Amino acid sequence: MTTTTSHKATSYQRSAWAFLGPGAAVVVLVLYLPVLYTVYLSFTTYSGLGSPVFAGVANYVALVQDPVFVTSLVNTLIWVAGSLLIPVGIGLVVAYLSFGLKGAAWLRVPFLIPYALSGVAVGIVFGFVLQNGGALSQALAFLHLPGSETRWLQEAPLNTVVMILAASWQGIGVNALLFTVGLQSIPKEPLEAARVDGASGWRLFRFMVWPLLRPSTTIVVGLSIVNSLKTFDIVQAMTQGGPNRVSETLGVSMYRDTFSNSDYGLGSAVAIFLSIITVAASVIYVRRQLAIGDSSGDTASKDA
Rank of each mutant, 00 (worst) to 15 (best):
Met1Lys: 10
Thr3Asn: 08
Ser6Arg: 13
Lys8Ala: 11
Ala9Ile: 13
Arg14Cys: 08
Arg14Ser: 11
Ala16Ile: 09
Val27Leu: 15
Val28Arg: 02
Leu29Ile: 13
Leu33Asp: 14
Tyr37Met: 09
Tyr37Gly: 12
Tyr46Ile: 01
Tyr46Leu: 01
Gly50Leu: 07
Ser51Glu: 07
Ala55Glu: 04
Val61Arg: 11
Ala62Gly: 09
Val70Asn: 06
Leu77Asn: 07
Val80Gln: 05
Val80His: 08
Leu84Ala: 02
Leu85Ser: 01
Gly89Ala: 08
Gly91His: 12
Gly91Asp: 07
Val93Asn: 04
Val93Phe: 11
Ser98Arg: 00
Gly100Phe: 12
Pro114Cys: 11
Pro114Trp: 08
Leu117Asp: 09
Gly119Pro: 13
Gly123Gln: 09
Gly123Ile: 07
Val129Arg: 11
Leu130Lys: 09
Gln131Cys: 07
Gly133Lys: 11
Gly134Leu: 05
Ala135Asp: 00
Leu136Arg: 07
Ser137Glu: 14
Ala139Tyr: 08
Ala139Phe: 10
Ala141Met: 07
Phe142Val: 02
Pro146Val: 03
Gly147Glu: 12
Ser148Cys: 03
Ser148Val: 01
Glu149Gly: 12
Arg151Phe: 01
Gln154Pro: 02
Leu158Phe: 09
Asn159Asp: 14
Val162Cys: 05
Met163Gln: 11
Ala166Ile: 05
Ala166Met: 04
Ala167Cys: 07
Gly171Lys: 03
Phe179His: 01
Pro187Glu: 02
Pro187Leu: 06
Lys188Thr: 10
Lys188Ile: 03
Glu192Asp: 15
Ala193Trp: 04
Ala199Phe: 12
Val209Ser: 02
Pro211Met: 08
Leu212Gly: 07
Arg214Met: 12
Pro215Asp: 02
Ser216Trp: 10
Thr218His: 05
Leu223Val: 06
Thr231Leu: 15
Ala237Leu: 07
Gln240Asn: 14
Gly241Cys: 04
Val246Asp: 12
Leu250Pro: 10
Met254Phe: 06
Met254Ser: 07
Arg256Val: 14
Arg256Ala: 02
Asp263Leu: 13
Gly267Met: 06
Ser268Val: 10
Ser268Glu: 06
Val270Gly: 03
Ser275Lys: 04
Ile277His: 14
Ala280Asn: 06
Ser282Met: 13
Val283Glu: 02
Arg287Val: 01
Gly297Pro: 00
Gly297Val: 02
Asp298Pro: 00
Thr299Leu: 01
Ala300Gly: 01
Ser301Lys: 04
Asp303Asn: 04
